[in-house]
Design a binder for these strands. Structure first.
Length: 213
DNA sequence: ATCCCGAGGG
DNA sequence: CCCTCTGGAT
């Protein structure tokens, strides 16, 4: 499969870094707990719609204690505008209970404990480890899977393969921020349907530049 | 492999 | 109408 050279990869991230020195998530939150819930809610949903829902949800229940009091139906009422809302309401409640029972209401800082929470898989755990605890891990979501494959940055048949390739090939000094750079690039430039190659700053490095399929 | 599932874009 | 959106559990 077609793959970028290491020199092209370094230049790719050098340009994204230059354009955006301190990339951040666009999800809104005021605590590690709120980020965790927001990421759980973000599955197959735009962060825009997640933020609209979490403004209401976190106003009513900013902590795991308050979330348990709010209850599944109360949670569902606030997040009805997000897809998969019944599963997400159930997981948010169960996850909050588990945090209180096992972790004193705090978000654990290791993968095993995070993935043991209902509704939290590898991708969500990696987002929390990277965004809250500043660990150099790659959470491969729909955007990063697409950008990795399309550009030749990190091709792979599934998300785990793309993640491993990114961990091996992204320069260490870029690894901490690479997650957010790739998300933002996928969201605003390298879009799923009609990639905006005309405004792309890394077009000359891309192995699929100007292709329409 | 299938289910969950609303909103926005084209 | 169809596709996509920071997936996870069964």
């Amino acid at each position: 499969m077609a793959m970028m050279t290491r020199e092209a990869i370094r230049e790719f991230f050098r340009r994204l870094h230059e354009a955006n020195p301190h990339p951040q998530t666009e999800l809104e939150y005021d605590s590690p707990y709120q980020l965790l819930v927001a990421v759980v809610l973000s599955a197959q949903a735009t962060d825009r719609s997640v933020n609209i829902a979490t403004r209401k949800l976190f106003a009513a229940a900013p902590t795991p204690e308050a979330m348990v009091t709010l209850g599944e139906e109360g949670i569902a009422e606030h997040i009805k505008t997000i897809g998969l809302f019944r599963n997400k309401a159930r997981n948010t409640l169960a996850l909050s209970r588990l945090l209180l029972e096992r972790h004193g209401g705090e978000v654990p800082a290791n993968r095993e404990a995070l993935e043991a929470l209902p509704g939290v898989g590898r991708k969500t755990a990696n987002v929390v480890l990277n965004t809250v605890f500043r660990q150099p891990v790659m959470a491969v979501d729909t955007h990063i899977f697409r950008v990795g494959n399309r550009t030749g940055l990190a091709p792979g048949k599934d998300v785990l393969e793309v993640e491993k390739r990114l961990m091996r090939r992204v320069p260490k000094d870029y690894l901490l921020d690479a997650h957010h750079w790739l998300i933002l690039h996928g969201r605003y430039v390298c879009t799923a349907r009609s990639p905006k190659c005309g405004i792309c700053s890394v077009r000359d490095l891309c192995l699929s530049r100007d292709k329409t399929d």
